[in-house]
Amino acid sequence: MLQVTDLRKTYPTGDEALKGVTTSVEGSETVAMIGPSGAGKSTFIRCVNRLTEPSGGEIYLDDTELTGLNDDALRAARRDIGMIFQEYNLVERLTVMENVLTGRLGYVSAWQAFRRSFPPEDIERAYEILDRVGLGEMENKRVDELSGGQRQRVGIARAVIQQPKILLVDEPTSSLDPETSNTVMRLLTDIAAEREVPVLINIHEVDLAIEHADRIVGLHDGELVFEGSPSELDQLGLDQVYRGAEVPENADDGQAPETTGDGDVLPDTDRPLAGET
């Protein structure tokens, strides 16, 4: 179970991406996080496994508090958190199998990783998962030969082979066409259900969220403005999420609307590392 309390993130530029968000993902439910671009959805997910360092708040995964962990403990904790990315983020020049086995790196030494000598049970599990996501016989293809849908299946396999306690999914379908999006979402939620893994998924297509999620949370401008079942998400809820309307304690209503149209990751200037979208 993931329990997030009062999560805050302020970038060095002064942008407040998250203004104290409290929510949880329990049992083996699938929670969809919706919201407009710039609402802080990606920042939220990236703060959970600390790819982005949160500025405040607490994150509990089962009994482990993540924000205070040192580097070694954080690495160990990340082994229990599977992540699936918007742009797949597969290592393009490696084979499908090597990409899937990346999910087991936390359990082998650097030398074994270099030799590609993973334990036999990891290999066996990798084959099973590849069969399950429909990529049997593709293990020796290089990833840059695959289509978008196939790549995201590799991405799912890589996250699932970690045998994670939770799956974090960041806009899994925004680089895919609508039909493939639906198939990938179906595959993702099915696999999560089979393995009884809870899922926290960022998504901006509301209809996909309603179709596939057990519960929906809505972010607007760094604040949680909606929480409920898909059936409870009515026009009022949508207005709150997408226009910031009629939120009782919203003091910032007069501000200019968010205009960062290119994905919802705010400029990540606390890392000198470019190259993400």
Partner: peptide, 12 residues
């Protein structure tokens, strides 16, 4: 589907 213990070596 799961045909026993499969092995894998990186293609060269």
């Amino acid at each position: 589907m799961a045909a026993g213990n499969r092995t894998w070596e990186r293609p060269t």
